[in-house]
Simulated assay, not measured.
Amino acid sequence: MLTWKDMETLYERLEADDCIGVYIEIKQYAQHYLKDRQECQKAVEILDQMLSVMDPCICISEWMHGSLFTLWKTISWTYIHDMIQQLDDAFPHVAFAFGICYPKAQEELSTLFYKCQLAAIKSKDHAKYTTSYELYDQLLENRLLQAVSIQEMVEKAMAKGNLRVFIQPKVDLATQTICGGEALLRLYHENQWLPLSEWMKEIQRNSFIRQTDVYVLHQLFHMFALCQKQQFPLLPISVNVSEATLENAQEYLMEVKKLTKASALSSKLLEFEISEDILSKDNQALSDFLTVLHQEGYPIAMDDFGSGSASLTTLPHLPFTSIKLDRSFFPQPANEKNNLMLQSSIRMLKQCGYGIVAEGVEDECYLPLLKEAHCDQIQGHYYYQAMPMSEYLQLLRSWV
């Protein structure tokens, strides 16, 4: 292993065409999933040995906070892929991130390192507990600059209270009364509400959404405390759990339990929604997460039912308490075939014991169909749009 100074000296003697830069990182959060915490250190030691005898490897830097930087001889992308696969197979319980870059003429080593690191952390799979790798290009850097800008905007909005939690009430179809709601994020920036399409996907990609998921929890428990103080009705609120949060579920669960315990409130007040798209992936971490929630008494809903690719055979194996029908069940205008499918789906799910929430209902024509099929709740613009917490509390006040 070389110091950075020695590596720079060696690099200066090489031509740009003689080498490539390879950044290797042991993903920090992967350590939560290791069967043996010593395995991470073992992986570091064995990785050092493997790289030192690999023919393409010219030199290796000292370890820097769980990562290292190496120079390899110029080889094909296919060969690089095979090398990474070899390392991944050697450590099935450790997830690595690789960033690769071909240097330009007279490019400094620090710049090459930056580009390799950038490629590693911006891989589309970097947030997942799997080994990931990416080749640097200029488009990648442009995307990063945009991502950094969006993340900084969201962080500032959180600090200033401009990342707001709105509540969209749910209505009990039988009694026509509010029976709960769903927490939804809204971003206020430069005197306007920004569409979700301008920022939500980016914070999902870079995993910053893990922080906003926790932020929503804190805002909700603050609202619950206000309800208790003002003696308003305490109604259950559902929150969406992102795929990135599920990749780091243990820390999220700890926060959920801590907030619930500190508030002395029933776990029944906080429902967790899992998108059908997430269920289509074979994910043991998700199954474990849902099992813990169920054991702790939290309600769990499958969100967007009918929009994704999850099989109906998935449902019996996961502890869902309710199903939220996707808005695609409620097209404009309505048609007979769709109505038959809607009613049949509700009846089948009801027979299996699930509560049913119809989401995205905007037209009165669907109410008789939903009542006939014994749908439990409606969430949609026909009754209420998403509203600031203050307006939701005013709505609850009218009940007192």
Rank of each mutant, 00 (worst) to 15 (best):
K5C: 05
Y11G: 03
I20P: 04
V22R: 11
E25F: 00
Y29Q: 06
E45T: 09
H65K: 02
L68G: 05
T70Q: 07
K73N: 03
H81L: 11
I84C: 07
Q85H: 08
D89I: 02
D89K: 04
F91E: 00
A97D: 03
F98H: 01
C101Y: 15
A105S: 13
Q106C: 06
E107W: 07
S110R: 14
K115N: 03
Q117G: 05
A120W: 01
K122V: 10
S123N: 09
D125S: 04
A127T: 05
A127P: 02
Y133L: 08
E134Y: 07
V148L: 14
E152L: 12
A159F: 06
R164I: 14
V171H: 10
D172Y: 15
T177Y: 00
C179T: 07
N191G: 09
E198C: 08
Y215A: 00
V216F: 13
L220Q: 02
H222Y: 14
P233V: 05
L235V: 11
P236T: 00
I237E: 03
V241Y: 01
Q250T: 09
E251P: 09
E251K: 12
Y252G: 02
K258R: 07
K258C: 05
K258A: 05
A264W: 15
E271Y: 00
S275C: 15
E276L: 10
L279M: 12
L279Q: 06
D282W: 08
Q284F: 15
T291N: 13
D303H: 06
D303R: 08
S309K: 10
F330G: 12
Q332H: 12
L342R: 00
Q343L: 04
S344L: 00
R347P: 09
M348S: 13
G353Q: 04
G355A: 14
V357W: 10
V357Y: 11
E362L: 02
Y366C: 00
K371L: 12
Y383W: 08
Y383L: 04
Y384P: 00
P388Q: 06
L395Q: 04
